[in-house]
């Protein structure tokens, strides 16, 4: 499963978890902030079913959220203070994401 293939699943989960204290944000690792490619990336994202907030990268993003990322998709979980909790590599099914999300929410929220 590729990055774009799970966008629909993540969009569904973002909607289902709305108001529970959990949110999903996308980060496009190949779209720099302010570039003309952002529009194309958004179009691709939308056509793939991704309807949640997606970020572009800057230097500060590279030094923080993109640090140590060697494969895509990579998913990082942060608490409300921006502290990194855990990192998950690879794409997952909806059930796979539910198990991970519920575990994190139960243990760290």
């Amino acid at each position: 499963m590729s990055c774009l293939q799970e966008m629909g699943t993540l969009s569904d989960l973002a909607y289902e978890y709305k108001g529970t204290g959990f949110s999903i944000v996308g980060l496009s690792a190949d779209v720099p902030s302010g570039s003309s490619t952002a529009a194309a990336a958004k179009e691709m994202m939308t056509s793939s079913g991704g309807k949640f907030t997606n970020l572009t990268y800057t230097d500060s993003v590279v030094q923080t959220m993109l640090a140590g990322v060697n494969v895509v998709p990579t998913t990082k979980f942060y608490d409300s203070n921006g502290r990194l909790l855990t990192v998950v590599h690879g794409a997952k099914s909806k059930e796979g994401w539910i198990n991970i999300i519920e575990t994190v929410m139960n243990e760290k929220a």
Partner: peptide, 29 residues
């Protein structure tokens, strides 16, 4: 950090303060 969304809106680390847990999915085209 400081960056923008695909729509051009400014975003910073305050994004995390809106929820207990935030999942950041890193992807490429």
């Amino acid at each position: 950090f400081e960056t923008t969304t695909l729509d051009g809106d400014a975003v910073s680390q305050s994004l995390f303060g809106r929820n207990k847990i935030t999942m950041v999915n890193i992807w490429t085209q």
